[in-house]
Design a protein around this nucleic acid. Structure first.
Lengths: 342, 342
DNA sequence: ACCGCTTGCTAAACCCTTTTAGCAAGGCCA
DNA sequence: TGGCCTTGCTAAAAGGGTTTAGCAAGCGGT
C-alpha cells in the first residue's frame, strides 16, 4: 500500500547506523565485528519497515541478479514439453531465483535477440531448451556466461540435460517381453532418416538403439517395422491400418510416441481389435493423451519436469561438470499391455 | 566473446565526449544541442564497440526495466492455457519487453512470494493469469503498480482480459441450429454449481448464459441436459454412455468443452453411432485434442493467444481504460457437424 | 606517557546509466 | 568595454545497494 519503497537507507536511519552496517547485517556477514545490539536494531528496523532489497541495484554491484534466462524454441508454449519449464520454474523458485522466459520459434534472428535481451538484464546464466532433443546451434555468447543446454547438446556449451533414451528404449521392449510377447511385435514409427540424422534428433537415435539392443539381447525380432515421416496421430492411424490389412499375426505394437499410439488405437478399433486383449500397445513420452485413452496407454515417460529441475540445479551448481546429464525415463504402467492371447 | 561488457563510459571515451553526451545521443534526445559531429562520433563508437546498455542500471535511474511480471497459477505449464503465455511472450517481445514468469499453483503463500519476487526486480507491471477464468484473490500490491488480470477479474485491479463467452455460447448453438438441428440436442456438462458459483468460474456462467439465450431466441429446447462435476474425458464418457442407454432420439451433442467431447466420442463409438452422420458434436476450447479426433471436432475456441497478447498491450498502454476487455471466440469448423439424418 | 591491538563502526568508492544544473566560449548589441 | 544570449558540452548528483579502507575509542602492557 505505501507508495514509496523502503530503502536500505531508511532501515539504517531508523536503526541509527550507517547503510554499510545495515547492509552487512542484513546479508548475515560474520566477519563484521558489529555488536549484537546493532544486529538487533537493524533486523528490527528492517522487519518493522518491511524492507525488501532492490535486486537490480544489488546486482549492479554484485553482478548477481538471482535471475536466469530461459530461452527456448517453443517449449513454454507447447504442451509437449511444458514440463521442462514447470520443473525449471519450481527449482528456480526453491533456489530463490526467477526465470526470464523467452521464445524464439527456432528463428536464428530471434535467438540472437533473445540472448541480447537476457544479457542486457545481467542474468546469472542461460538455459537453452528445445522441444525435440537435438544438437542446437547457439549464437555467440560471452565466455563467462553460464550455459546449460536442456534437451539439447552443443559443442561450445558442454553442460547438457537429456533424457536417458537408451535405457528408455530398453524398458519399452522389456515391458512387452516380460509380459510374454515374443512374436508378432510391430515397431510403429521407426524412421531411417531420423535414426541416422543426428542433427534432427540426437536422442531419438538413442531410443531406437536401446530398443534394438534389448530386442537383440532377448533374441527377439520385430514381425514388422512400419516407418513414417512424422509422428502425428494420423500417421499412426494410416500406418497401423495398412499393417493390419496385410497381417493377422500382430500381437503387440511398440510405438515411437504416444501420438502415434493414439492413431494406432483408432486403427485397431476400426479393425475390431481390442487393446490389450487382442493387441498390446506400448509407447513413449507420457503425453497427456496417454491417460485419456481407454484403456490407458502404458508408456515410457519423457521426464520433462525432472529435466527442467536439473537444468536449473546444474546452472546454479558452482562446480558442475561438463557432459551429458541423463535423466531416467520412468515407466508409466496403465492398461495397454497383457500377455498374448492363446 | 570479449569478456568485459562494454559500458557507456567506454563509448564516451572512444568518442572523446562525456558519458552524459553519449547517453543523450544514444537515447535520441532532441532537446540537446549536441552537434551533428558529436552524434556521429558517439553512434560510430557505440556501433564499433557493440555497446548494449545495462538495463538494470538504467532502470535504477528511470524506474523502467522493460520487464513484466507474469504470475499465474498453472498457466505456463499446462497445455490448457499455454496460448496465454505464448501470446504474452510475443507481444512483449514486439514491444521490447521481457517476461518474468512465475507460477504459484494457486497457493496464497506462493502468490505473495511471487509478487514480492517480481517487485524486488522492479518490474514495469504485473499480469495475473489463471487457467480457469475466475475471480482471483490477489494479495496487497503497492498502488502504483500496473496490473492486468488475464482470464480473471478482481475488484481492486479492474483491468482484465476475458474471452467473450456470451457470444461464444451463442455461436455454438448457432452452429447446430444453422445445420438444421432442432430436436434431439443434448447439453453435456452443464453444471448447476458452476453456473451459479461465480467465484469458481465467472466466464463459464457466461458461456451457459449465451447458450441459453441463443436457444431461447431460436425457440429451441434441449432434449436432455447431462450435468457432471468435472469436465475430464471420462466424465464425458460416463455421462454420454448413460444418456444413450436411455434415449434413442439424440441427434446432436453440445459439450461444454473438448475433453468432455473426447469422452463422448468414445461413448458414441461404443454404441455404434457415427460422428457426424448419426450424431453431430460441437464443443468449446479448441483443445489440441480437437484436431486429433476423427472426424475433427468443430469447436468454439478459447482465444488464448489473442488474450495473452492483449494483456501485455493493455499493460503497456499508458491510457488504458478499466473494465473487462472481451476477446472474441473464433469458431473452428472441422468435421463433426452435419444436418440431422432422415 | 607512549605504543599497539582490538572492537565497533562509518566514509567513500563503486556498479552503470540518466538527468539536472551550469560552465566556457563566442557572437551580438549597446 | 560590458552585458546578454546562444551554442556545445561536462561535472556531479541521483538511483539503491555492497565493499574496501580506515577512523576513533578503549584497553593492556611497558
Amino acid at each position: 500500500m505505501p507508495n514509496k519503497r523502503v530503502t536500505l537507507a531508511d532501515v539504517a536511519r531508523r536503526a541509527g547506523l550507517s547503510t554499510a552496517a545495515a547492509s552487512m547485517i542484513l546479508n548475515g556477514r560474520t566477519d563484521t565485528r558489529l555488536s549484537a545490539e546493532a544486529h538487533a536494531r537493524v533486523n528490527d528496523a528492517a522487519a518493522e519497515l518491511g524492507y525488501r532489497p532492490n535486486v537490480a541495484a544489488r546486482g549492479l554491484r554484485t553482478r548477481k541478479t538471482l535471475t536466469i534466462g530461459f530461452i527456448s524454441d517453443v517449449v513454454a508454449t507447447t504442451r509437449f514439453a511444458s514440463g521442462l519449464i514447470q520443473g525449471a520454474l519450481d527449482a528456480a523458485r526453491k533456489a530463490g531465483h526467477v526465470l526470464l522466459v523467452l521464445e524464439t520459434g527456432g528463428d536464428p534472428a530471434r535467438e540472437s535477440e533473445a540472448i541480447a535481451a537476457v544479457l542486457d538484464r545481467q542474468v546469472d546464466g542461460i538455459i537453452f531448451g528445445v522441444m525435440r532433443a537435438r544438437e542446437l546451434f547457439v549464437p555467440d555468447i560471452p565466455q563467462a556466461t553460464n550455459v546449460v543446454m536442456l534437451n539439447a547438446s552443443n559443442k561450445k556449451h558442454p553442460v547438457s540435460v537429456l533424457p536417458d533414451e537408451l535405457s528408455g528404449g530398453r524398458a519399452a521392449v522389456a515391458l512387452l517381453a516380460d509380459a510374454g510377447h515374443r512374436n508378432g511385435i510391430a515397431l510403429i514409427g521407426h524412421n531411417e532418416e531420423v535414426e541416422k540424422n543426428l542433427f534432427r534428433s540426437a536422442t531419438v537415435g538413442q531410443r531406437i538403439a536401446g530398443i534394438r539392443a534389448e530386442m537383440a539381447e532377448r533374441g527377439l525380432r520385430f514381425a514388422a517395422e512400419e516407418s513414417c515421416w512424422d509422428w502425428e496421430p494420423h500417421h499412426g492411424y494410416d500406418v497401423t491400418r495398412a499393417l493390419l490389412k496385410d497381417r493377422g499375426d500382430i500381437r503387440a505394437l511398440l510405438c515411437m510416441n504416444d501420438r502415434l499410439a493414439f492413431g494406432a488405437y483408432q486403427a485397431l478399433a476400426d479393425h475390431g481389435l481390442s487393446v490389450p486383449h487382442d493387441v498390446s500397445v506400448v509407447s513413449f513420452d507420457n503425453d497427456e493423451l496417454a491417460s485419456y485413452l481407454r484403456p490407458g496407454l502404458t508408456t515410457v515417460a519423457l521426464p520433462h519436469e525432472a529435466m527442467g529441475r536439473s537444468s536449473v540445479e546444474l546452472l546454479l551448481d558452482h562446480d558442475r561438470r561438463p557432459g551429458h546429464h541423463l535423466i531416467p525415463m520412468p515407466v508409466i504402467e496403465r492398461g495397454s499391455i497383457l500377455p498374448p492371447a492363446g
